[in-house]
Lab assay of single mutants.
Amino acid sequence: IRCIGVSNRDFVEGMSGGTWVDVVLEHGGCVTVMAQDKPTVDIELVTTTVSNMAEVRSYCYEASISDMASDSRCPTQGEAYLDKQSDTQYVCKRTLVDRGWGNGCGLFGKGSLVTCAKFTCSKKMTGKSIQPENLEYRIMLSVHGSQHSGMIVNDTGYETDENRAKVEVTPNSPRAEATLGGFGSLGLDCEPRTGLDFSDLYYLTMNNKHWLVHKEWFHDIPLPWHAGADTGTPHWNNKEALVEFKDAHAKRQTVVVLGSQEGAVHTALAGALEAEMDGAKGKLFSGHLKCRLKMDKLRLKGVSYSLCTAAFTFTKVPAETLHGTVTVEVQYAGTDGPCKIPVQMAVDMQTLTPVGRLITANPVITESTENSKMMLELDPPFGDSYIVIGVGDKKITHHWHRSGSTIGKAFEATVRGAKRMAVLGDTAWDFGSVGGVFNSLGKGIHQIFGAAFKSLFGGMSWFSQILIGTLLVWLGLNTKNGSISLTCLALGGVMIFLSTAVSA
């Protein structure tokens, strides 16, 4: 259960009878995928790494000078000259100064003066180019299975845990398959586009800190620079940016070097996208990844198990997540596992009318040892309800109150669905055939309105939902006002479609 501690969480529900669903994975976010007769899966884009970055340009932001020398000439005696002028490691300046009897010249006039100092770069920052084909995306998957609280967001041991898996995709191999043991396998067909235009970005490294910066900004930095990788004795261009020549006297000129420019660069980098280094690879934390999940090989585990009949206890007080759902960790005293956990939410304890829904599909106890633990997640209705676990006299209950409203949740879900469709863009549509167009249209309606429909009408039977949709269509056909007619027709059509397409 990876997503319960992530604030940016998206719930995606598969269409009834569908074998695939489109998701948008982004750094700092987590996606929970639910479908009829399929286990619930949490998917998170953990890291995006980039390798084989080529150094484009380096800037010196802290330097020192040494070996200063000057040469001067009297008027009419030609130009002052130093051998160091031809050495690229030196920074030199030529000027004219007033000369006369007082400073060793027989004539009054302008004399030539040249001053040089050896330039040494102490600290530099480097910009590297990123090729999209060198990106690698690491995705962690977790099935809502027989897990306890100690396994949440624990990325170790996934090789031997059938509840978890790690997959890596690249532009050259965008397809992967996550093996989930008894739950089958989940196929991923990803489109490795981060949403960032790397043709316009460089990877900047300064003092063990890293950013993504725009090329134009990078090339306009007014500091000494050299092109390409460091060859040991780089040729620094624009050395004068960190060196200041003071007022010249008759035979000498003082040279000083400016202080470190790291603070000024940090100020200019305010708002830039931060990154990290992992050995020789860069780690990015921006952008998104679009994936199509193929769920035809994914299956529920323990459908044929019998119900657990022994007593359950709450190991922890049920807690609310950031998303309005409830996490419950229970301990089973029996030894008759594997068995299914009898769990439901009810409005009252007399009729036990089921409300809400299970995020953890078909929760089971897989071990036959005593005191096995299991964590599950529920989506309670707004208002008061009861969490009921167990059967008969051994069942345990917990009162729950959820604040908020169904309308607010439906609106929030619609906005999130619209954002998801905007990110998917043209990849969500198939114009290759008439059937493809209608299929894409259905998927689009489901992406945007599916979660809201589930919130508003999830407790009704599909037949009642179709009746309401048919009534809206009838009202649309018999209303003389054009805008009201079109609105009723659209709402009725969407409702009829979703009542037959969205899983219960």
Score class of each variant (00 low, 15 high):
74 C>W: 12
85 Q>G: 09
300 L>A: 03
159 E>F: 03
299 R>Q: 06
394 K>V: 15
329 E>G: 13
337 G>Y: 12
338 P>H: 02
2 R>I: 07
302 G>F: 09
483 S>G: 07
192 P>N: 04
11 F>L: 05
432 G>C: 06
304 S>I: 00
372 S>R: 00
274 E>C: 06
361 A>S: 02
53 M>E: 03
212 L>H: 07
225 W>F: 14
184 G>K: 08
280 A>F: 00
209 K>L: 00
214 H>R: 10
46 V>T: 15
395 K>M: 14
217 W>V: 04
208 N>V: 07
202 Y>N: 10
398 H>W: 13
365 I>G: 00
492 G>S: 01
49 T>R: 15
424 L>H: 06
216 E>W: 10
111 G>K: 06
454 K>E: 12
494 V>S: 11
198 F>T: 09
295 M>S: 07
495 M>Q: 08
412 E>C: 09
248 A>V: 15
350 Q>H: 13
174 P>M: 11
384 D>E: 12
331 Q>S: 14
337 G>I: 13
436 G>R: 00
327 T>L: 02
361 A>F: 09
154 N>F: 03
59 Y>K: 06
33 V>H: 05
453 F>M: 10
489 L>C: 14
298 L>V: 06
374 M>H: 02
226 H>Q: 12
124 K>F: 01
469 G>C: 14
240 E>T: 00
165 A>L: 11
27 H>V: 15
253 Q>C: 11
429 W>T: 01
191 E>Q: 10
373 K>V: 14
473 V>N: 03
435 G>S: 05
240 E>A: 09
240 E>N: 15
386 Y>P: 00
436 G>D: 10
207 N>K: 12
95 T>S: 13
18 G>R: 01
479 T>I: 07
216 E>D: 14
348 D>C: 00
382 F>Q: 11
261 Q>R: 11
461 S>T: 14
319 A>N: 04
479 T>G: 08
57 R>N: 05
447 Q>Y: 08
339 C>M: 10
260 S>T: 13
147 Q>R: 14
418 A>F: 07
34 M>D: 09
202 Y>F: 12
376 L>T: 01
326 V>A: 15
306 S>R: 08
94 R>Y: 09
31 V>S: 14
221 I>E: 04
228 G>T: 04
251 K>I: 01
161 D>R: 12
431 F>R: 03
331 Q>N: 10
369 T>I: 15
446 H>I: 05
4 I>W: 12
480 K>Y: 13
77 Q>K: 06
25 L>M: 11
137 Y>R: 01
339 C>L: 01
43 I>A: 01
22 D>A: 03
460 M>H: 12
378 L>V: 13
323 H>W: 13
61 Y>C: 12
57 R>I: 08
186 L>W: 08
418 A>C: 07
422 A>Q: 06
234 P>R: 09
141 L>N: 09
150 G>F: 01
55 E>D: 04
44 E>Q: 11
173 S>V: 02
85 Q>S: 11
385 S>A: 13
357 R>K: 12
182 G>Y: 04
104 G>V: 11
388 V>E: 00
263 G>Q: 11
206 M>A: 03
85 Q>V: 15
459 G>H: 13
319 A>E: 02
244 E>V: 03
480 K>G: 13
478 N>V: 00
95 T>W: 08
223 L>I: 11
78 G>Y: 07
491 L>A: 13
95 T>R: 12
208 N>Y: 00
460 M>Q: 09
382 F>P: 06
186 L>P: 01
203 Y>C: 13
309 T>Q: 06
241 A>C: 04
475 L>A: 14
289 L>F: 08
398 H>G: 00
12 V>N: 06
305 Y>E: 03
421 M>W: 08
111 G>S: 03
126 T>A: 09
405 S>H: 06
178 A>N: 06
325 T>G: 09
254 T>M: 08
490 A>Y: 13
113 L>K: 02
187 G>I: 05
363 P>G: 01
131 Q>W: 15
61 Y>P: 00
328 V>H: 06
236 W>I: 04
114 V>Y: 05
449 F>L: 06
35 A>D: 05
190 C>M: 11
409 K>A: 15
328 V>R: 01
41 V>G: 00
304 S>T: 15
284 L>H: 03
269 L>H: 12
48 T>S: 14
223 L>N: 10
49 T>S: 15
236 W>M: 10
106 G>I: 11
167 V>H: 03
30 C>K: 08
493 G>D: 06
233 T>L: 14
1 I>H: 00
256 V>P: 00
255 V>C: 08
13 E>C: 08
307 L>I: 13
212 L>T: 04
488 C>Q: 10
448 I>P: 01
125 M>W: 09
135 L>A: 02
306 S>C: 01
108 F>H: 07
101 W>R: 09
204 L>G: 05
477 L>D: 08
143 V>P: 01
168 E>L: 00
132 P>Y: 14
268 A>R: 10
94 R>D: 10
416 R>H: 11
319 A>D: 06
341 I>T: 11
9 R>E: 09
407 I>E: 05
271 G>H: 12
381 P>N: 05
470 T>I: 01
162 E>K: 10
476 G>N: 10
70 S>I: 10
230 D>S: 14
92 C>I: 07
147 Q>A: 02
468 I>W: 11
456 L>D: 10
472 L>T: 15
79 E>V: 08
48 T>R: 05
7 S>C: 02
156 T>F: 03
190 C>I: 06
188 L>Y: 06
68 M>F: 03
381 P>T: 06
157 G>Q: 09
194 T>R: 15
448 I>V: 15
491 L>R: 09
285 F>K: 05
503 S>C: 07
203 Y>P: 02
131 Q>K: 10
61 Y>Q: 06
280 A>I: 01
307 L>C: 03
68 M>I: 15
273 L>A: 05
220 D>N: 14
16 S>N: 05
354 P>E: 00
151 M>S: 14
262 E>L: 04
450 G>H: 06
300 L>C: 03
5 G>W: 07
164 R>A: 01
238 N>R: 09
129 S>D: 09
222 P>G: 05
426 D>L: 00
212 L>I: 13
150 G>W: 14
2 R>C: 08
204 L>K: 10
425 G>A: 14
302 G>R: 01
376 L>A: 01
339 C>D: 08
249 H>V: 05
391 V>P: 00
177 E>F: 08
33 V>D: 05
346 A>G: 15
164 R>P: 00
38 K>E: 11
313 T>A: 15
392 G>S: 11
31 V>N: 05
495 M>S: 10
220 D>Q: 10
52 N>L: 00
260 S>R: 03
467 L>R: 03
44 E>K: 11
144 H>S: 04
236 W>Y: 06
300 L>G: 00
420 R>A: 06
228 G>R: 10
159 E>R: 02
163 N>G: 14
87 D>W: 08
465 Q>C: 04
363 P>N: 07
132 P>G: 00
236 W>H: 05
123 K>I: 00
268 A>H: 12
242 L>C: 07
84 K>M: 13
352 L>R: 11
166 K>C: 03
56 V>R: 01
292 R>T: 04
252 R>W: 06
105 C>F: 11
137 Y>M: 10
444 G>V: 14
264 A>L: 07
325 T>P: 03
299 R>S: 04
74 C>K: 09
138 R>F: 14
137 Y>I: 04
47 T>H: 13
365 I>R: 00
171 P>C: 06
160 T>D: 15
396 I>T: 15
403 S>M: 15
99 R>H: 09
50 V>Q: 04
95 T>Y: 11
276 E>I: 10
